[in-house]
Nucleic acid binder design. Structure first.
Length: 188
DNA sequence: CTTTGGATCGTCT
DNA sequence: GACGATCCAAAGG
C-alpha cells in the first residue's frame, strides 16, 4: 500500500483497508473492521475542537499511526488519512490473526479463544504489541516496525456498513465498515 | 445467552 | 472534576 493512498478522505480509505494485512514486528493480522473519523468537523473525533497535544499526530502527514490511550488502560490505533492537516483518520477496530498467534496469546492471556485476540480496537493493539511508543510511526517505511500490507486479497465488494461504536455524538453517521460474516468483527 | 458495573488514569474544562 | 473511539468478570434468565 503506497503512502499516497492514505492521502484521501478516510471514508474512501476505510473500506479499502478491509482485508489488508497489518504487520507489527513478528505478528500479522487481517483487518476486518474499521471506522472513519473526520477531524474538526466530526463531533465524535478526538480532533473535534482543534489540535491538542494528544491528537497532534492526526494533524500531521497521512500514513502515520495515531495511537491514543483511553479508559485509563487501553491503547487504540488509527491510520492518519488526508487531506493533510484536516486530522482525518481510520480507526482499526478488529482483525483476524494470521501469523504470530503464539505471541498474541502471550500478549493477551485473557483471550479464551483465538477469535478474541483482535476483535476490538484495544484488543487488537494489545495482541499486536502496539502502544503509545508507536504514536506517529510511519506505516509504510519498510524499516519500521509497523506496516500495512496488501497481499492481493481484495476488499469485500459489499462490506457491512453502519454507525460507529462507542461514541455519544455523530451516531447517525454510517462511518463503520466490516467484512460481513467474519467471526472477528467486534459488533454485530 | 444478555446485562451490568468496576477498573483506572490521561486529557481537557 | 468529569469523562472517555473499551474490556472483562460476574450475575441473571
Amino acid at each position: 500500500m503506497l503512502n499516497t493512498e492514505f492521502a484521501r478522505d478516510p471514508r474512501d480509505v476505510a473500506p479499502e483497508l478491509l482485508n489488508k494485512l497489518i504487520v507489527a514486528e513478528d505478528r500479522v493480522a487481517r483487518i476486518v473492521e474499521v471506522e472513519a473519523y473526520c477531524g474538526e468537523e466530526d463531533p465524535a473525533s478526538h480532533a473535534y475542537g482543534g489540535k491538542t497535544a494528544r491528537n497532534s499526530v492526526m494533524f500531521g502527514p497521512p500514513g502515520r499511526l495515531y495511537v491514543y490511550f483511553t479508559y485509563g488502560m487501553h491503547w487504540c490505533a488509527n491510520v492518519v488519512c488526508g487531506p493533510e492537516g484536516l486530522a482525518r483518520a481510520v480507526l482499526l477496530r478488529a482483525a483476524s490473526p494470521v501469523f504470530g498467534l503464539d505471541e498474541m496469546r502471550l500478549a493477551r492471556p485473557r483471550a479464551r479463544r483465538d477469535v478474541d485476540l483482535c476483535n476490538g480496537p484495544a484488543k487488537l493493539c494489545q495482541a499486536m504489541g502496539i502502544d503509545g511508543s508507536m504514536n506517529g510511526t510511519e506505516l509504510i517505511d519498510a524499516r519500521g516496525r509497523l506496516a500495512i500490507f496488501d497481499d492481493g486479497v481484495d476488499p469485500p465488494p459489499t462490506p457491512g456498513v453502519g454507525p460507529r461504536v462507542g461514541i455519544s455524538a455523530g451516531t447517525d453517521l454510517p462511518w463503520r465498515w466490516w467484512v460481513d460474516g467474519d467471526s472477528c468483527v467486534s459488533a454485530r
